[in-house]
Amino acid sequence: MQILKVTLKQHTPLIHFQYSEEGATLRASEVKPRLDKFLIARLRKRHSDWLSKWKKGETEALNYKLRIQTDEADKLRVKIPSSRNRDGKFEAQFPMVLANMDGKEREEDLKNFSCYKKVTLIFIAEDQALLDQIDTYIDSFLAVTNFGNRQSKGFGSFFRDGKRKSDFEKALFMFYDCVYCKTFSFDLRDYESVKKAFRSLDLAYKRIKSGVGREDSLLHIYGKEHGIEWEKEAIRNKLAGRDVPHKARYLRAILGTTNSVSLPEIHKIITIQSELNSNNGEEIVQRFRSPITFKFFDGTVYALPEDGVKDIMGKKFTFTLKEENSKTGLGSMDLTVPQIDFYNFLEEAFDNLGWTYKELK
């Protein structure tokens, strides 16, 4: 058997459900299927003759084993502080971390951080040529992939140890001609500095999607400039018994869908359901997560747009208004997701935020 070892540097905390256990870090059950999918997509184009040899039968898995190794001496004792809320449940609050919001009966059921200075991936295969391909593509895979909970928000960022920023950006070049980036300097060993960085990122993302305080959302501003009113205005009109604006669309779906919206100040809740497939009765859109992934390398965060936004455009969703804690309906309305130039919107949004436009060469 042949062995390839790749040592990774951890750049941001990994949100882990077993954070307190020894060796709780990246899981082979998450890394390998995603790496296999990434590799197969590339090998199919360049080494299709070898691919059948490297795959496990008719499956979409490659014929190697992956072990993940850590040294407890490298573990960083960075943890979200927990406390009890008014209901006596345990909470651990941190910017952009949603898993603990409702509280847990037991403190050990909270999700928390797993941080190591270094993590080693150990690949084991019979064919050295397969390991050579893994070694070739692993940097590109890691450059656009985060792991664990809330990965699109920058958590769980790793890259090969010993690499420079220029190496990371070279790996990004496989996918992007240009990106937006910003410096959020922090020390992974220092909880408060990590929290400050993610608070800043959280604020930037809220300015894009929902707005902050009386400051309007950059997405809403973009919509209005292009003759689109967003769903919030439609909801206000529906609750007030007024007609829904004919230009109203489910605009925020461009940056990810949700199943419901709570309006606690007026004791209302809004459920949001995609139109149904006529063949099986299931929702056409099961879930659409944010098409922007934030990737950290040292103190720089990169905003990486993902494909698939066009798939959500034009889809219809039903908004049903209800009394809070009741099944009583207060009416419903259908809104479609608008057609917009997604990349033009990102350009305007990140320019407004003062992020750096960077061409990758």
Score class of each variant (00 low, 15 high):
I254A: 02
Y343H: 14
R44G: 03
M101A: 10
S260C: 13
A73V: 12
K53N: 12
F342T: 00
A41V: 08
K118M: 04
N344Y: 11
Q18T: 15
R242D: 13
V97D: 00
S210N: 13
L121C: 03
P245I: 08
K232Y: 02
L35R: 04
Y222H: 12
V261D: 08
I270L: 14
Q286R: 08
Q69R: 04
S52G: 15
F297Y: 12
Q273T: 15
I269F: 09
K9S: 09
Y357D: 02
L62K: 05
G103I: 04
E60R: 02
S200D: 10
L353E: 08
G241H: 07
V144Q: 07
D109C: 07
K322E: 08
D311E: 15
K268Q: 14
D161N: 09
T257W: 01
D49K: 15
N344D: 15
W355N: 06
T120P: 04
M313P: 03
F173K: 15
E169Y: 00
N325V: 10
K232P: 02
W54G: 00
R164F: 07
K224S: 00
P33F: 01
E58I: 01
S217L: 09
S193I: 00
G103R: 05
I138K: 03
D334V: 13
R44M: 06
S217F: 12
G23V: 12
K89L: 15
I266G: 06
F175G: 02
T293H: 11
L8E: 03
R77D: 07
G156D: 01
V244R: 11
V261A: 13
V97Q: 04
K238W: 10
G331D: 08
I40T: 08
K165Q: 11
I266L: 15
F17H: 11
E215T: 13
I134L: 03
D307S: 09
L43D: 09
R207C: 07
L353N: 05
P264C: 06
